[in-house]
């Protein structure tokens, strides 16, 4: 499959393809705004989901003492993870775009993708936290450390590789999702780059979708579509690789300098 995509799309790849705007009703030109848009959405959704996800996981594993509430939240999180992404799109549309009046914008799209990412980040962070042995926590507490000092200086560093991997995988997923941004952030075409978080943006997955289904010359622009797909796959690959490299680095460090 990858071979087919590369074969079909390779002819479209060039420096111009990466750095210029689409031309002639998107039948020619590049995908620069879509790349930028996707990057914005990745950054935006990280800002939303990483802190909330990690804090939730810390609460669930380290602080919460009421078993029932913890179980309830975990159940909710698991269910959230199983919901199709298009439902997240509709949810984002009704809550962020319409009710909170953010409009179709980077903000609404980031929030929607952030919510989509949350379960993955919470789950992987929880798992990473739980792999840190109880004996480390006890040792730290027995030295007079507070709970928070223990979490911040012993537990989190120990769990970091696992957390990072989860975060990177979820960001990779967010980068590739079409449905959640379709109604909340993505534009068919924008003549300029967005200058505020309330602007709508082009995004790689949506760009592919549009060109492949609603473009003016669907067949003729096949190479462009596949070229965009190559870029998207590369981007996701880079994110996942970064996750792996960071994990490897921290692993080494964890074994003690």
């Amino acid at each position: 499959m990858l071979g087919y995509i590369v074969k079909t799309g390779f002819s479209a790849l060039s420096w111009e393809f990466l750095t210029t705007f689409p031309k002639d009703s998107m039948t020619k030109g590049g995908i620069f705004p879509a790349i930028i848009g996707t990057l914005y959405l990745i950054i935006g959704s990280s800002i939303v989901s990483i802190p909330v996800g990690i804090i939730t996981a810390i609460y669930l594993t380290e602080y919460a003492s009421n078993e029932k509430i913890v179980r309830l939240i975990r159940l909710g999180v698991s269910n959230l993870a199983g919901i199709p992404s298009v439902v997240f799109g509709l949810f984002g549309l009704s809550l962020f775009v319409i009710f909170l009046k953010f409009g179709t914008s980077i903000l609404a799209g980031s929030l929607t993708l952030g919510v989509l990412n949350l379960p993955v980040i919470i789950r992987s962070t929880e798992e990473a936290l739980m792999t840190v042995p109880k004996t480390f926590r006890e040792a730290s507490l027995s030295l007079g450390a507070t709970r928070w000092q223990t979490i911040y200086r012993i537990v989190l560093p120990g769990a970091l590789p696992g957390i990072l991997t989860g975060v990177m995988l979820s960001l990779g997923r967010a980068a590739g999702e079409t449905a959640p941004i379709m109604f909340t952030a993505a534009a068919f075409f924008t003549p300029d780059l967005p200058t505020s978080i309330f602007h709508e943006v082009m995004a790689l997955p949506y760009h592919i979708y549009v060109m492949a289904t609603a473009g003016t010359k669907i067949l003729e622009t096949r190479p462009l579509q596949y070229g965009t797909a190559i870029i998207l796959i590369t981007l996701v690959l880079i994110l996942n690789m970064t996750g792996l490299i960071l994990r490897y680095r921290f692993r080494k460090k964890l074994k003690g300098i």
């Binding site: 042995p133 004996t135 030295l143």
Partner: peptide, 13 residues
């Protein structure tokens, strides 16, 4: 202070 049954140094230097 407390010394535990199983030695539990932190994964640090």
């Amino acid at each position: 202070g407390m010394v535990f049954q199983k030695s539990n140094p932190f994964p640090k230097s």
